[in-house]
Design a protein around this nucleic acid. Sequence first.
RNA 1: GGGGAGGUACUCAAGCGGUCAACGAGGGCAGACUGUAAAUCUGUUGGCUAUUGCCUACGGAGGUUCGAAUCCUUCCCUCCCCA
Length: 411
Amino acid sequence: MENVFEILRERGFIRQSTNPTEIARILSEERITYYVGFDATAESFHVGSLVPIMAMVHLQRAGHTPIAIIGGGTTMIGDPSGKTTMRQLLLRETIDANGDGLLSQLKRYLDFGEGIGTFLNNADWLLPLSYIDFLREIGRHFRVNEMIKAEAYRQRLEREEGLSFIEFNYQLLQAYDFLHLFRHHGCVLQLGGDDQWGNILAGVDLVRRLEGRTVHALTFPLLTTANGEKMGKTATGAVWLDTNRTSPYDFYQYWINVDDRDVKRFLACFTLLPMDEVNRLGELKGDSIRKAKEVLAYEVTKLAHGDVEAENARSASRGAFGDGDIDLSAIPTTIVDADRLNGGIPVVDLFNEVGLGGSKSAVRRLIQQGGAYLNGEQINDTNAILTGEHLDRGALLLRHGKKHVHRVVIE
RNA sequence: GGGGAGGUACUCAAGCGGUCAACGAGGGCAGACUGUAAAUCUGUUGGCUAUUGCCUACGGAGGUUCGAAUCCUUCCCUCCCCA
C-alpha cells in the first residue's frame, strides 16, 4: 500500500503532528478510523474547508475510515480559536439545518457507505451531558494554568474583547468528542486546521488520562494566498461550494484568478492529479501559467460540481475572455420579461438587479469610471435606458469591470 | 460590589458644538499597464425617485441648542485596577 502519510506530506497537508513516525506507521500498516470536525456555522462549506476535506479523501482512498463530525453541539458554544471576537450564538434549529447542508456536500467527496465512512453530529452526545457529571469526569483533568497559556486563549485574553466562560469551555468539549469517538468508534486520529492544534491535543491528553491509550493529532497549515489573505475571500464574500451561493462559473473563475505563486500549492492540495503532473504544471512561467490555472480550475470545479458543470464553466470562461464567441450558457444568467424590456429598463437598474454592482449608486460610479459594458461596448451614460434595440441575439451581456459578466436573457 | 477608561463606517483609527457622509491607513471596486497573475500609478468607496438636492448614519433611547458624532440624562455593552 502506498504510504498516505507521505502523500499528505508531499501535497502540503501537514503542519504539525504528534509522533510522525508512529502515524506514518499505523497509516501504512493498519486500517484506522480518523475524524475531522466541522463547524455548523453555515449551511455550506467554502473553499477553505476543502483542505480538510481533501485530506480526508486521500485517507479514505488509502483504506482508512473517515468520521466527519458536524459540530452541532460545539457550535452552540463557539470556538474562540483564531477569532478575535466572540461568535454569535446560533439557534439549535439553524445548526441542524446547517448540518444537513454540509453533509450533502461532503457526500460528493467521501463515501459514507456502511462501514466505510460515518457522519455524526456531536450534539447527539454533548447535549445530554449533565453539567456536574461532566465537570467531575472531564473537567478535573484540565488545568486552567495551562489552558490560559495556550495561544488560542492568550490572544483573546490580551485583546480588549476578552474571553467569555462559555468559549473557554470549547476545548473541553472538543477533547470530549475525541474521547467519545475513541470509545465508541475506535477513532485514533484527529485532523484539523492548525488553529485547532491545542484543542486536538487536549483530546489526545484526555484519552491518555482516561483510557491509557495513545491517539494522534495532525494539523493542516492554515492556507493563505500569496498575498497573505485568507483563502476563498472575495469582494462578494466567501467562495462557497453551494451553487446557490457561488455559481459553478464563479467558482471556476475564483481558481482561474489565483495568484501565480499559489498555483502549484493549490494543485497539490485541491486536486487529485498525480504529483508529476502537479510539478510539471507548477513550473510553467509567464503567459503559459494560465494553462495550469485552467487545469486547476477545471479539476477543482469537477470535484465540487461534477464533469458537466466543470465543462460548462470552462467553455463559458473561455467564451467570456477568449476572442471567439463560444458557448456562453454557463455564465450566470437572469431572465427578463420581453414586455418589460420593451417598456425600457434603466441600465443602472438592470446591473443592480443581476447583482453586478451592489447598489444603484455603485453602478453609477462604475459607469462614470468606464467600467460598465453592454455587449462589449462601454456604457457612457448613467441614465441610459435599455430596450429591445439593444438585444444581441436575444440577450444582453452585461460586464462589470474586466472579470464579472452576467447575461440577461429575454423571454 | 468599588474605582477608572472606552463604544465612530468592511477593519484599524482621527474628530470632541457648526465648514462632518465624517481626516488618515489598510482593504474593496474601477481605470492605465498586463497574462482573466503580481507590482506600480490614478480615481473611487452610505443610500436614493439626485447636475450644487433629499434621506439614513458616529452603541440604544430621550434631552439641551438655531444647529450635536461632539454637551446633559438614562440604558446596554467592552476593557483595566481593586474585591
